[in-house]
Write a protein that binds this DNA or RNA. Structure first.
Lengths: 150, 150
DNA sequence: TGTAATCTCTCTAGTCACTAGAGGTTCAAG
DNA sequence: CTTGAACCTCTAGTGACTAGAGAGATTACA
C-alpha cells in the first residue's frame, strides 16, 4: 500500500494542505518519499491521520492531540493524562453549550422582537444592542477557551 | 466629558489595544486628539463602543457589527437587514449548540468509559479516538461557520 | 515515445479578532 | 520639576488552517 498525499486525503477526508500542515506541526512524522520527492504513505499513517481527524471533529486542539499521540506511542504509560484531556474537553464543551444557550435566548428575544418592516430608528434589534439594560439576562463577560466548533 | 483611551477601556470593559484595533478596522471613527496626540473620547464614542461590546458578547462578527453600525448611522433606512443579521446569528448559534450537544454525548461516553488507572494500551479514550466505529452517533464532518464563542 | 492533464512540491501570505512587545512620548500627581 | 503611569506607533505572533504562485512529478492514453 503506497498512497500519495491525495489518496490519503480522499481516504481520510483531510485536505492535502492540511496533511502537510499536520506534518509541519509534528503530528504526522515525515513520510517516505518517491524518487521524485513526493510523499508516500502506508497503513500506519492512514490510521494516525484517522485518529487526528476524529479527535479534531470532537474539538480537541492540536496540542491536546499531540499529547494523545505521544501516549499512543508509549502504550506502557498510564492513561491518566488521556482521561484528563478528554474530561477537560468535555468540560469545555459543556461550558460552551451553557454560554451559547444564554446567547440563544437573548438573540431570540432580540430577533423576534422586531418585525423588520420599520425604519432603523425604531429597530428593536439596534435598540437592544445599544442598551444593555434591555437584556433580560446577563450574558457572559468574555472568557477564554480554545475549543473550536468550526 | 473627555475620556482617555484608558478611561474608555475601564468604562466599557474593552481593552485598550482592542479599542485601537476597532479604530483601525473602521468600527470606531478616529477620535479627537490632545495636544500631545493622545486620543480623547466623548459620550458618542462611549455609546458606540458599548454597542460593539454588547454585539461582540452576543457573538456577532466585526463585519456584522459594521453593517449594524452603518444602519444606526442612517436611521431612515429600513431595518430589514438588521433583523436578518440577528436572525442569521441566531441560526448560527442554534446550529452550534446542536453540534456541541452531539460532541458532548460522544465525549461523555469516551471520557466516562475509562477509569484512567490502566495502561495506555488499554485506554478506552485512545481506542475510541482511533476507531470511529466505536461512535454511537456520528458527529459532523467539518462545516464552516464564523461565530465565535470565545 | 510523446504529450497533456493532473498531481505534487515548497514557499509565502492571508484569514479572524485580537494580544504582546519594543522603543519612544505625554500626562498628571506630588 | 520630577517621577511613573499611561499613551503613542509599529511589527509580529496566536490557532488551524486556506489560497496562490511557480515549478517539478506522475499517470493515462495515443
Amino acid at each position: 500500500m503506497f498512497l500519495s498525499i491525495g489518496d490519503l486525503a480522499v481516504r481520510t477526508g483531510v485536505k492535502v494542505p492540511t496533511i502537510r500542515y499536520y506534518e509541519s506541526r509534528g503530528l504526522l512524522a515525515a513520510p517516505l518519499r518517491s524518487a521524485g520527492n513526493q510523499r508516500r504513505y502506508g497503513r500506519a499513517e492512514l490510521e494516525r491521520l484517522g485518529f487526528i481527524r476524529h479527535a479534531r471533529d470532537l474539538g480537541f486542539s492540536l496540542e491536546a492531540i499531540a499529547a494523545l499521540i505521544e501516549l499512543q506511542d508509549h502504550p506502557d504509560r498510564a492513561c491518566t493524562s488521556a482521561t484528563r484531556i478528554a474530561q477537560d474537553q468535555l468540560g469545555a464543551v459543556r461550558e460552551k453549550i451553557r454560554r451559547l444557550r444564554a446567547l440563544e435566548s437573548e438573540l431570540a428575544r432580540i430577533a423576534e422582537g422586531c418585525t423588520g418592516d420599520g425604519a432603523a430608528r425604531d429597530c428593536y434589534v439596534l435598540a437592544s444592542l445599544a442598551d444593555h439594560d434591555l437584556c433580560t439576562q446577563d450574558h457572559p463577560i468574555e472568557a477564554k477557551s480554545s475549543t473550536q466548533v468550526s
